[in-house]
Simulated scan of single mutants.
Amino acid sequence: MQLKYTGKTKDVYALEDGNYLLKFKDDVTGVDGVFDPGANTVGLTMEGAGQAGLRLTKYFFEILKEKGIPTHYIDANIEEATMTVKPAEMFGKGLEVICRYRAVGSFLRRYGLYAQEGQHLDAFVEVTLKDDGRQDPPISEDALDMLGILSKDEYKVLKALTQQIGNVVKEELGKKAIELYDIKFEFGRVGKDKQIVLIDEISGGNMRAYKDGEYIEPLELEKALLQF
């Protein structure tokens, strides 16, 4: 294995067969010791977060596979906190795509003049650039196209996949009487035909979820869903 990239919450290794291995860490994003899925810094370390995040990621990726929704997932080893994935090409230097069902977090900070806290949103899709130095700025469909990051046709696919996958996660949480407020995804192009697929992870560290109006921490969310 060859280390290709050291990330905030996982490391990426190249395998001899051309696939990649993701090693999940116990670090989660946040600010001043408080978890925030939208933050671009590591805020705290939570013991067991890596394995728990992978366990939930495997759970959701396998549901998506059953539904025929494309991802880069091949398999996972929970004990070692690793996931084997297909190689994927990023959009530019990386995009994050958020699907929002409630007005919280950065959405509320930006649009608080018009939005009420906790206001219902209709699977609102927001794309931001992965750019720590510029605080991950939001970017529009037109700008993505003009800057050569993502064509307008690709944007339509990206948006549709985001809402489709977001609704799958929302439905699964709903079975446990848990409400999804927002979730962050990453996508990439895979194979010769450059198919747009979900990459990275689907874990408690990438979403905000509430039960009876109370926020659920990532580890607690994973325990509640998978009952481990």
Score class of each variant (00 low, 15 high):
38 G>T: 13
99 C>V: 12
144 L>E: 05
58 K>W: 07
36 D>M: 05
67 K>R: 15
157 V>P: 05
125 V>S: 03
13 Y>P: 01
166 G>W: 00
227 Q>Y: 11
220 E>I: 12
210 Y>H: 09
84 T>W: 01
162 T>W: 02
147 L>F: 13
34 V>T: 14
78 I>D: 03
177 A>M: 10
135 Q>R: 15
4 K>Y: 10
8 K>M: 10
42 V>H: 06
190 V>D: 00
61 F>M: 10
157 V>Q: 08
65 K>N: 09
226 L>E: 09
148 G>M: 05
90 M>L: 15
192 K>P: 09
136 D>K: 02
68 G>L: 02
227 Q>F: 11
188 G>V: 00
210 Y>N: 01
180 L>W: 05
51 Q>L: 13
190 V>C: 09
11 D>Q: 06
196 I>Y: 00
148 G>I: 08
99 C>R: 03
140 S>P: 03
127 V>A: 04
177 A>Q: 14
169 V>M: 03
134 R>F: 08
149 I>K: 00
112 G>P: 06
70 P>H: 01
210 Y>F: 15
205 G>E: 08
20 Y>M: 11
56 L>T: 07
213 G>Q: 07
210 Y>R: 02
201 E>S: 00
206 N>R: 01
138 P>T: 09
28 V>K: 00
141 E>D: 11
98 I>D: 04
93 K>C: 10
88 A>W: 00
118 G>P: 06
107 F>S: 10
143 A>W: 06
48 G>F: 12
134 R>E: 03
46 M>R: 12
199 I>W: 03
133 G>T: 14
98 I>L: 12
55 R>D: 13
44 L>I: 12
54 L>R: 04
32 D>R: 12
171 E>D: 14
1 M>K: 11
1 M>V: 13
25 K>L: 11
84 T>K: 12
103 A>S: 12
132 D>N: 12
40 N>G: 06
203 S>N: 07
128 T>Q: 08
